[in-house]
């Protein structure tokens, strides 16, 4: 959660809820397998509890934390992660080298770089390096898919 008073409170509550849930799940583990997770649960509830209490006892100490974060700024990494997930899924359909080259050309353009020759050269260089290292030197076989 963001670095704000309410971010701190929501984080603490979420961690307490998570720790209680994980602790509850741990009670089913046999042969002493529950000891360590329960210990961690207890510690997490304690630390998050102190963190929550601090927001009420000394709220003024969080005043300096107020940092404005634009929603678009927070969402961009999620969008890029979604692109990477699609890339991983496409590797097995289209082929490793084609999708990798496409990503290395497409993503720089998408994030705002306007140097086509450099982008194409670096994408070709990186793809060739991966081929040389993994296929030729290490003998690994990358997924081929429909293309290459």
């Amino acid at each position: 959660m963001p670095n704000t008073l309410w971010g701190e409170r929501i984080s603490a509550v979420l961690f307490i809820a998570g720790a209680l849930y994980m602790g509850w799940l741990a009670t089913d583990f046999p042969a002493g397998g529950d000891l360590f997770p329960l210990f961690v649960s207890g510690l997490m509830v304690l630390v998050a509890g102190i963190m929550l209490a601090r927001t009420f006892v000394a709220p003024e100490s969080f005043a300096a934390w107020r940092v404005r974060e634009a929603p678009a700024q927070l969402a961009k990494p999620i969008a890029i992660t979604a692109v990477v997930i699609l890339y991983v899924l496409a590797i097995f359909r289209i082929g490793y080298y084609t999708t990798t080259f496409a990503l290395l050309v497409g993503l720089p353009v998408a994030v705002g770089l306007r140097r086509p020759v450099f982008i194409l050269a670096s994408a070709a260089g990186a793809t060739a390096f991966i081929y040389a290292l993994f296929e030729l030197a290490l003998g690994a076989q990358m997924p081929r898919g429909l293309l290459f």
Partner: peptide, 21 residues
């Protein structure tokens, strides 16, 4: 010295291939 717009995607690609390998 590479532009960050090229370096970022490269690191993402190497993260995927490195983990998979």
């Amino acid at each position: 010295l590479f532009p960050q717009g090229v370096l970022g995607p490269m690191i993402l690609v190497f993260s995927v291939i490195g983990t998979y390998a």
